[in-house]
């Protein structure tokens, strides 16, 4: 029995979170999150006429740092073509001080980020997307259906060495009203440090 219990616990530990499938709608789109400018912003508010880019990111992760200038440039430029964008930090800053709100403000200013960079204060938005790491990209079409998820490109280390511009190609496709040529890719990233799940109790009436 003890062995069975141990293996069951192992299986539970190995269960992966459910990630959005292609064609799924944007989850928790109406949840307000605090932007680096102090305002509350939801994904629904930044939806573009041609599509919506949601990027799970943070300040501390070296893979984010490797890609953040490219991500910023893509978000800023395609916003002008009707694709709304939002960067979301779901990490618990109690674990990584570098991911604090103040450091997000500094980072956004340094990068020249022209789209919202918001705090997922419960990490529940990341949970709803099934996001597991930073950076991780989800791109929705004009109808709000997921059409691309995964990586920015195929070379974190060297922008000049990129041979496959996955996200740029997907953004260009939906800006033109087409389906992205490649809809799922993978890249390494830092595991999201989720905030502890809070359980609200209601007193019996």
């Amino acid at each position: 029995m003890k062995g069975t219990l141990t293996m069951l616990m192992f299986s539970a530990a190995l269960t992966s979170p459910t990630v959005l499938d292609l064609g799924d709608s944007i989850p928790m789109a109406d949840v307000k999150m605090k932007n680096v400018d102090g305002n509350q912003v939801s994904i629904a508010q930044i939806k573009g006429t041609k599509g919506t880019l949601v990027v799970f990111t943070c300040n501390h992760c070296p893979y984010v740092k490797a890609w953040e200038e490219r991500l910023t440039e893509l978000a800023n430029s395609f916003q002008k073509e009707g694709i709304g964008a939002i960067f979301i930090n779901s990490n618990d800053p109690a674990r990584y001080e570098e991911d604090s709100y103040e450091n997000m403000q500094t980072r956004a200013a340094k990068l020249g980020l022209e789209v919202p960079y918001v705090v997922d204060a419960t990490s529940d938005v990341a949970r709803a997307f099934g996001a597991t790491k930073t950076p991780e990209v989800f791109l929705f079409d004009a109808a709000g259906k997921l059409v691309y998820r995964g990586a920015v490109d195929d070379n974190a280390e060297n922008p000049a060495g990129v041979t496959k511009t996955y996200l740029k190609d997907a953004l260009a496709a939906i800006a033109a009203g087409r389906v992205p040529p490649l809809q799922q890719t993978k890249a390494l990233g830092c595991t999201i440090k989720f905030r502890a799940k809070t359980i609200k109790f209601r007193a019996k009436e």
Binding site: S16, V19, T132, K133, A187, C190, T191
Partner: peptide, 8 residues
């Protein structure tokens, strides 16, 4: 194949 790429 099912791994998202999150480290570790």
């Amino acid at each position: 194949p099912a791994w998202s790429g999150s480290l570790p």
